[in-house]
Write a protein that binds this DNA or RNA. Structure first.
Length: 787
DNA sequence: ATGGAGACCTTTTTT
DNA sequence: AGGTCTCCAT
């Protein structure tokens, strides 16, 4: 049996169908636990086994984790390094890389940096202040939401400003100046040579829309496209995928409409519901067999999701055991709820010898983790909280990274403002305000004012202060000068020391943890340097780059879109896992606790205003329920601390949507009352909820209608050089010593030597104009000239 | 310019 | 409850 057949033999018939159909559009509707990741990875492996070059495959995911997992599994499957050449990553990271390469066309440099949400909010906050608007009305998060929604719908700031419907919504909410903030915010990002998360998708669209040669280039590079979690794509992502796939139509999307939980940030469930309309020839495969959970869990999940109107019909089933009933446990307070869970975990472990790592506690909001944490500590149960405050969002890390960023890109205004007075060097608010006013009035960058204060600042700023500004600029410039000479670790260490960050933290014993975090970054830098490959290659020209040097800017690029430290399985393998339900998507655990099953918490009070929002909450519940393999426990409390005060809460309506045959309801014993018996045929929670149900208030419509994208791009763009006139494109195997060749960038040359095998052929070529170059033949589009 | 005390506001979910 | 912001004293 050959390897391709071997791959297929490990799949069920529906999965095989999804894997085998390499050409043409395919949509895989993958029910929870039906082996979605398996299908994706096996499909890529199958493609590779069928001779498709790895670099023609583009696999897009939503999280770094999903991308990493896929890579690892393909590696295990094929046992060679082919997986390394597959372009696999999050939408944001893949397009960031492309935009760094091509960004000059849009007026950005190769140093293009990414602003995270914090940077964006700070920038907006400052703009609101500069415009003398009321910061209580114009909150950064609300404004960023509006801007983000616009960018995700491919609406420019100008279009936003001119759209009367949007103006009406903003005027009605008392915030008529959002459009102007939007414009200033964009200008500011541009001046800083920076993009925010949404820009990465927005400008990728612009690149493909306005530059036909770019569309042509990337359509032909990525001939096979796979998209994971397609139900979570927003309009900007949808359009990129559509454009890239337009030429070859080899697009495979995988998703589950029932697990769409990101509409709040612009995901459009219609993208998956309308796939058949976009690609009429599409083959649709449904994966309906659940391999993960017990029958009780699968049946309960099926039953509750039926309350939703918007969905593709499917019936998930399992041949697993019926399993235990789902426990519903009521407690008096959130603290009791937490104690119950901790002691329940202990009890199960005592009886069945189950490792901590097989337990997960899920919640709707991060704020709920505190009470749980306390109980776990009290019960001596090791745990790990996922997300929360991610490593890269910690203050000290952001401070150090701001130094790195500013060294790489002197124009990064957010980084500059963050660190110009940290550690304190006597440059306070007042001075910075004057600097900013001067920069705005004289229409130069803030950096220029700092660099040359005598020219741009008047006598109002005292000479000693000017000197301090200049000294700061000099310090940063000394780092910049070292960028290409020192490796990432040496320079990083130098910056951490000479900037004063380390001594500042050393002064205060209570900052020990922050100091350790700084050391962790330095460790990471060391590893980055040590693990750096010796050679790399340029994807465009195929040129092999010897002595690849691990510089600090390469490090910063590599971590720009990481939200958390890589899952350090070594340390966390024996810990109970705590996370939000959103963070749990795609994961599975034997024992799952879903906490805070209460009205206004789950479903969230903010999401019960419309049917669409409520249905999203229900899908979220569906996701949570289907994480459990063996035992699911739902807990709710009658009283809970909210904003520091104790509040009463009613059981979640979702509890009543699970048919009574699958559940086992009990009150928590510690309150003194015995377990509550299940009375009658009806779920008692149902009637309880029905009594206090109120009509939902109407919500103003604020969502954008995606505009149709005017310029269609199927026409073949003209290349700057007419290749056919020069000769014919050579296959890698055509290249032999002494052959005369033509390269788009390096011109005419002669092959001196060829080495390597199959997909890794390299040639040393002497070019008339640029001398000797080693090229990777799979990437170097060499032409054999006409005689 | 800095730091501390008290008022105040928050809470969805994340690349 | 906890973090952020404002104001006031140094």
């Amino acid at each position: 049996m050959n390897k391709a057949d071997e791959i297929l033999s490990q799949l069920n018939p529906a999965q095989q169908e999804a894997v085998k159909q390499i050409e043409g559009p395919v949509m895989v509707i993958a029910g929870a636990g039906s082996g979605k990741t398996r299908v994706l990875t096996y499909r890529i492996a199958y493609m590779l086994e069928n001779g498709i070059p790895p670099w023609q495959i583009l696999a897009l995911t939503f999280t770094n984790k999903a991308a990493g997992e896929m890579k690892e599994r393909i590696f295990k499957l094929l046992g060679d390094s082919q997986a390394q050449s597959v372009a696999m990553g999050t939408f944001h990271s893949v397009f960031y890389r492309i935009l760094r390469t091509e960004g000059e066309k849009l007026g950005y440099s190769h140093n293009l940096i990414v602003y995270d949400t914090d940077d964006s909010k700070t920038a907006i906050k400052n703009i609101v202040k500069e415009m003398n608007l009321d910061p209580k009305t114009y909150t950064p998060s609300h404004i960023l939401n509006r801007i983000s929604a616009a960018k995700s719908s491919l609406l420019s700031a100008e279009e936003y400003a001119q759209n009367p419907d949007i103006a009406a919504v903003d005027a009605q909410s008392g915030k008529p100046h959002i459009a102007e903030i939007f414009m200033r915010y964009n200008a500011r990002l541009k001046k800083s040579d920076a993009m925010d998360f949404d820009d990465l998708l927005y400008y990728m669209n612009i690149l493909l829309r306005d530059f036909p040669e770019m569309l042509y280039k990337y359509q032909n590079r990525y001939r096979y496209i796979l998209v994971d979690e397609y139900q979570d794509t927003n309009f900007a992502q949808y359009m990129i995928v559509k454009k890239l796939a337009a030429a070859h139509q080899n697009i495979c999307v995988v998703g589950d409409d029932a697990q769409s939980i990101y509409a709040f940030r612009g995901a459009n469930i219609q993208n998956i519901l309308n796939f058949k309309r976009d690609y009429p020839k599409a083959q649709i495969v449904k994966l309906e067999q659940n391999y993960r959970s017990t029958q009780n869990i699968v049946n309960a999940a099926n039953a509750l999701i039926k309350y939703n109107k918007d969905q593709l019909p499917k019936e998930v089933w399992t041949s697993n055991n019926e399993g235990n009933k789902i426990n519903i446990v009521q407690s008096n307070t959130d603290a009791e709820e937490a104690n119950f869970i901790a002691s329940n975990i202990k009890e199960i472990q005592l009886n069945e010898h189950i490792d901590n790592s097989h337990f997960a506690i899920l919640y709707r909001t991060n704020a709920q983790s505190r009470a749980l944490e306390e109980s776990l500590i009290k019960h001596h149960i090791p745990y790990k909280i996922y997300a929360g405050l991610s490593f890269y969002k910690r203050k000290e890390i952001k401070d150090l990274l701001a130094y790195f960023r500013l060294a790489i890109n002197n124009f990064d205004e957010e980084a500059l403002r963050r660190i110009i007075n940290y550690p304190a060097r006597g440059i306070g608010e007042t001075t910075m305000e004057k600097v900013i006013v001067a920069a705005n009035e004289q229409n130069v960058r803030v950096w220029h004012v700092i660099e040359d204060p005598e020219t741009y600042l008047d006598k109002e700023v005292y000479a000693p202060t000017k000197k301090k500004l200049k000294e700061f600029a000099t310090l940063i410039k000394s780092y910049t000068a070292m960028l290409q000479r020192s490796n990432a670790y040496d320079l990083g260490l130098h910056i951490a020391k000479s900037s004063g960050i380390i001594s500042e933290l050393k002064q205060d014993i209570s900052e020990k943890e922050r100091l350790e975090n700084i050391e962790e970054v330095l460790d990471a830098l060391k590893q980055f340097v040590e693990k750096a490959p010796e050679t790399s290659f340029n994807e465009d020209t195929g040129e092999v780059i010897e002595n690849y040097f691990p510089t600090l800017d390469r490090y910063v690029e590599s971590i720009a879109l990481l939200t958390d430290t890589e899952d350090d399985d070594k340390q966390n393998f024996n810990k109970v896992k705590l996370m939000t339900i959103h963070a749990a998507k795609g994961l599975e655990f034997d024992y799952v606790y879903i906490t805070g099953m209460e009205e206004n918490l789950f479903p969230s009070a903010l999401s019960i205003g419309s049917r669409q929002e409520l249905e999203e909450e229900r899908r979220l519940f569906y996701v949570a329920v289907t994480r459990a393999k063996v035992q699911l426990t739902l807990t709710h409390a009658t009283m809970r601390f909210k904003f520091g005060s104790l509040q009463f809460s009613e059981p979640s309506r979702f509890l009543s949507e699970i048919p009574i045959t699958y559940v086992n309801i009990s009150a928590k014993a510690s309150s003194g009352r015995g377990a509550m018996s299940i009375g009658g045929q009806r779920n008692p929670l149902r009637s309880r909820y029905a009594e206090q149900q109120e009509p939902a208030p109407a919500k103003p419509a604020g969502r954008f209608v995606p505009k149709q994208y005017a310029r269609q791009t199927t026409q073949k763009p003209e290349l700057s050089i007419d290749m056919a006139a020069i000769g014919k494109l050579a296959k890698p195997t055509d290249i032999v010593p002494k052959l005369k060749v033509y390269h788009v960038k390096f011109g005419y040359g002669e092959v001196i030597n060829v080495e390597g095998t199959a997909n890794d052929l390299k040639a040393l070529i002497h070019f008339d104009s640029v001398g000797d170059k080693t090229l990777l033949l799979n990437f170097a589009k060499l032409i054999i000239p006409k005689k």
